[in-house]
């Protein structure tokens, strides 16, 4: 399967988001892939609020089975969340569990005016009632397939499909 070019997808995502950006809009990238995209969108859309970052390790719903994530990183919300329109940015949307965790964490910083979701790829397979407002590409992938966003030494982003079948 030929995968779309990640940079083209980011351009498309920025195009979808641009009409809705207001002065107060803030972006929150989910570590790690979502943050890479959010960094680029932040510059392309000229967002004024500094970029927020969320590591969902402390909010995962599988802690009871899998324990603490190997390498948790600090989250950082360098703006006042209360009353602000916020767009959560992630690379690949799959079961929706990561977004559920990110929403819970976000609300522990305050009560945003609204929250939207922007993803590079929606690969289907949702297990929760979560739907992105902005999505650059929908792909229909099998459970045995693992889609990842990768960053090379030059900082170039690309999608990679790993087949476990």
């Amino acid at each position: 399967m030929k995968l779309p070019d990640a940079q083209n997808l980011i351009d498309r995502l920025a195009g979808q988001m641009r009409p809705d950006v207001v002065k107060e809009t803030a972006l929150v990238g989910i570590l790690t892939g979502g943050m890479w995209i959010a960094e680029r969108l932040h510059a392309m859309l000229g967002i004024e609020a500094p970029l927020g970052v969320i590591d969902i390790s402390f909010y995962r719903d599988d802690y009871g089975r899998r324990g603490l994530h190997r390498d948790p990183k600090p989250s950082s919300m360098p703006f006042d969340v209360a009353g602000r329109p916020i767009v959560i940015v992630d690379d690949i949307l799959y079961t929706g569990r990561t977004i559920r965790a990110a929403l819970n964490e976000l609300f522990d910083y305050g009560r945003p005016a609204r929250v939207d979701l922007a993803v590079l790829v929606d690969r289907g397979g949702r297990e929760l009632p979560i739907c992105p407002r902005y999505c650059a590409q929908a792909l229909d992938l099998d459970r045995s397939q693992n889609l990842q966003l990768e960053k090379d030494a030059q900082g170039r982003l690309s999608l990679r499909l790993i087949d476990h079948a």
Partner: peptide, 11 residues
């Protein structure tokens, strides 16, 4: 290290 940040939140 990331746990130090929890104290800075509203909740």
């Amino acid at each position: 290290a990331p746990f130090t940040e929890v104290a800075e939140r509203e909740v």
